[in-house]
Computed example of a mutant assay.
Amino acid sequence: MADQLLHILQHALGVDEHGRGEQYRSHFVTGAGSDDHPCCIAAVEQGLMTRRDGATLCFGGDDLFHVTPAGRDYVAANSPPPPKLSRGQRRYQAYLDADCSLTFREWLDTPWCKAA
């Protein structure tokens, strides 16, 4: 259940399996009968999430769970480290992060790529 809990918290925060990302959200919606609901209830009992009863909400009766600061700390402490990347993989990741209109080959010829 710890792996499922970590996955749910990561998903609720909008981060990847290594805990990386902008944490652009902090909620998870699930209802009784789903596989995730018991895990979210356990997270509430551990103080990692809070719960709003779906019966009081206007979107179909599922419960709304919010990640608490303790839940954010749990994700930071329990997410595995990202894999080590080779120099070429780091360069390609830098190209993807640049989000430019150049092809990878064109980007390789730019001055800022030489520093990567």
Results as ranks from 00 to 15, higher is better:
Ala2Gly: 10
Ala2Glu: 15
Asp3Arg: 09
Leu5Lys: 05
His7Trp: 10
His7Lys: 13
Ile8Leu: 10
Ile8Glu: 05
Leu9Glu: 00
Gln10Arg: 13
Ala12His: 06
Ala12Pro: 10
Ala12Met: 09
Leu13Trp: 00
Leu13Gln: 08
Val15Trp: 00
Val15Ser: 04
Val15Glu: 05
Asp16Val: 11
Asp16Ile: 11
Asp16Gln: 11
Glu17Met: 14
Gly19Pro: 00
Glu22Leu: 14
Gln23Leu: 11
Gln23Arg: 15
Ser26Thr: 01
Ser26Ala: 13
His27Glu: 10
Phe28Cys: 05
Phe28Arg: 00
Val29Trp: 05
Gly33Gln: 07
Ser34Val: 07
Asp35Ile: 07
Asp35Lys: 14
Asp36Lys: 07
Asp36Thr: 13
Asp36Ala: 15
Pro38Tyr: 02
Pro38Thr: 09
Cys39Leu: 12
Cys40Pro: 05
Ile41Trp: 01
Ala43Arg: 05
Ala43His: 02
Ala43Val: 05
Ala43Lys: 03
Val44Glu: 04
Val44Thr: 09
Val44Arg: 02
Val44Ile: 08
Val44Gly: 01
Leu48Gln: 02
Met49Thr: 00
Met49Gln: 02
Thr50Tyr: 07
Thr50Val: 04
Thr50Ala: 03
Thr50Met: 06
Arg51Trp: 00
Gly54Asp: 02
Gly54Gln: 04
Gly54Ile: 01
Gly54Cys: 02
Ala55Trp: 02
Ala55Lys: 09
Thr56Asn: 02
Thr56Val: 07
Thr56Gly: 09
Leu57His: 03
Gly60Gln: 09
Gly60Cys: 09
Gly60Thr: 02
Gly60Ile: 04
Gly61His: 07
Asp62Val: 01
Asp62Thr: 10
Asp63His: 04
Phe65Tyr: 11
His66Asn: 14
Val67Trp: 00
Val67Ile: 08
Thr68Glu: 00
Thr68Asp: 04
Ala70Gly: 08
Gly71Tyr: 02
Gly71Pro: 06
Asp73His: 09
Asp73Phe: 02
Tyr74His: 15
Val75Tyr: 06
Ala77Arg: 15
Ser79Pro: 03
Pro80Tyr: 05
Pro80His: 10
Pro81Gly: 09
Pro81Lys: 11
Pro81Met: 09
Pro83Cys: 06
Pro83Asp: 05
Lys84Arg: 14
Leu85Gln: 13
Ser86Asp: 08
Arg87Gln: 13
Gly88Met: 11
Arg91Tyr: 08
Tyr92Phe: 15
Tyr92Gly: 01
Tyr92Met: 08
Tyr92Trp: 10
Tyr92Arg: 15
Gln93Pro: 01
Ala94Ser: 15
Ala94Asp: 10
Ala94Pro: 05
Ala94Gly: 12
Tyr95His: 04
Tyr95Ile: 08
Leu96Gln: 15
Asp97Leu: 14
Ala98Thr: 05
Asp99Ala: 15
Cys100His: 07
Cys100Ser: 15
Ser101Val: 13
Leu102Glu: 09
Leu102Ser: 04
Thr103Glu: 09
Phe104Arg: 13
Arg105Leu: 12
Glu106Tyr: 01
Trp107Cys: 07
Leu108Phe: 06
Pro111Val: 02
Trp112Gly: 10
Cys113Ile: 08
Lys114His: 14
Lys114Val: 11
Ala115Ile: 12
Ala116Asn: 12
